[in-house]
Amino acid sequence: MSTAMTFVIALYIFMLAAFTGYEVISRVPSILHTPLMSGSNFVHGIVVVGALGALFNASSVLEQVVGFLGVMLGAGNVVGGYVVTDRMLAMFKPSTKPAASAPASGAKS
């Protein structure tokens, strides 16, 4: 395939992905804004895959050092993003009986 065609296909991908992102978010209740920001933060952690590819193909010390840093940061993004999002979302539970259970001493310090 020609370089020009590859480039155009890339633009198509970007355009469709941009619409997808817009659609996915556009009808979100504001209570989910923070978890969703955290969730999308997790999703872009996929950059770790790019960093891994770069590190596997490293052939100089500089590339190895930068690749190592990249993978480390990317892994932090992935795991941190997941854990934080999961913790936030775990708290959204519907109430069938509001006053029944004992008060959780929510004040963790």
């Binding site: 890339a10 991908i13 970007f14 992905a17 941009a18 619409f19 997808t20 992102g21 817009y22 996915v24 978010i25 556009s26 804004h33 969703l36 920001m37 999308s40 933060n41 999703v43 872009h44 996929i46 950059v47």
Partner: peptide, 14 residues
């Protein structure tokens, strides 16, 4: 490209 751009546009809207 897809995951990044989805977050790029979703994040902008957010």
């Amino acid at each position: 490209m897809i995951a990044g751009m989805v977050v790029g546009s979703a994040g902008t809207l957010l």
